[in-house]
Amino acid sequence: MTDTDKTALVQVAGFPLALDRMYEGRTHMWVARVGTGDPSIARIGLDSVGVETNGTLAQLSLPEVGEQLTVGRPFGQLEAAKFVGPLVSPVSGTVVARNEAAAADPGLTERDPYGDGWLIEVALTDFGAWLDGLTGEPDEIVAWFEAEISDYRMKGVIAQ
């Protein structure tokens, strides 16, 4: 992982993808190191396909600083297309920052999902174990992302 402020994006089947971070496949959440500081602090956000398949984001509810997160459990709510659903945490830890700009304008997450549209920052509980279940190798990330887009296109969820 590298600094999220210097994100380099590649285009995969028409969707931007950042290869400098890790991904949780089912939820399309990404996890990235914040700057060059404390390696146990991670930033979390939604990838571009996660954004696309939610529909227009109307509302975001994010947790308060200090709240405890558990991997696989909800840490907030997202409303799109009149559907309120959980944002599921890809890691365990404690919330150390929330993106107030994205909470005030969820469109920011649509416009810049890998940059200014991040959601929260977390102090990881177990730095050694948190990579479990995440995809981090660039080749694997691209292959997974392509397969997801292909699947969604076959189902008509996203346009060809």
Partner: peptide, 9 residues
């Protein structure tokens, strides 16, 4: 239910 909210609806 499909993970995509648009598809699920």
């Amino acid at each position: 239910v499909p993970a995509s909210r648009v598809e699920a609806l």
